[in-house]
Design a protein around this nucleic acid. Structure first.
Lengths: 122, 122
DNA sequence: CGGAATCCTGCGAGATACTG
DNA sequence: CAGTATCTCGCAGGATTCCG
């Protein structure tokens, strides 16, 4: 079967793929950190907070691979690298923003449900 | 600092929470499987496809805890259990649908980017 | 049929140290 | 400053078996 085709119900798998791509621990936070403009490596690290440089490097590379961010090296001493959100990255951040609003709107509700559930179960 | 308070920029963390909650391998697929109405355990298992009953049980329980699905036991022989999407679950599925559309719209783009990136790097 | 309990594995992810 | 290389560990998630 051709994967490039778009079967009627096949999108669910695509969503799953996107979600696992973007649903990892850092991708979204990095994208959000880049919304306001180009940032340098350690600048992002500081803004995200709690991320190891290992994961930052890794995640940035994946995001770059997917065309979400663009990496620009300026050969100076010390070397300076800027990361910028591409249009695709921006459009993702917009979409994620929807989810963010949903999350903000229902967070209390969910926590409430959890407390009730846990209260019952113990 | 009070975590229950809602600081202006604090939503990003909430999103992260929701994403890691919902961004796991199965939650979304289960929610989607339940959109069309109540389903029984093995029915869901069949519809989702590829999930172990272990993970199905686990994920359903978490979704129930968060108030996304409701579990209804009908004491018959053999026992019959129905899972239904709550209003909260439905609203989630709506929101996720947005993401699904984004995914569907940009999937080709992303794959393209990957191929190009991989081609360059080798 | 719908689970619970148990065991096992790989990968996500952190910490640390080294390089250019 | 901006990475790369290792090492390690926890946990998501799979397979299998047992229970009511």
């Amino acid at each position: 079967m051709d994967v490039t085709a778009k079967p009627p119900g096949g999108d669910c798998k695509a969503v799953g793929e996107i979600l696992s791509r973007v649903g990892d621990k850092w991708s979204i936070q990095i994208v959000v950190a880049l919304r306001s403009g180009p940032r340098r490596f350690n600048e992002i690290k500081r803004r995200v907070g709690g991320i190891s440089q290992q994961m930052l490097t890794r995640t940035l590379k994946t995001l770059e691979r997917d065309g979400m961010v663009e990496r620009t090296v300026r050969p100076s001493t010390p070397p300076q690298v800027d990361y910028t959100l591409t249009p695709l990255g921006h459009s993702l951040s917009e979409t994620v923003h929807q989810l963010a609003e949903w999350a903000a709107a229902h967070r209390g509700n969910i926590e409430d449900n959890r407390l009730r559930y846990d209260g019952r179960q113990v």
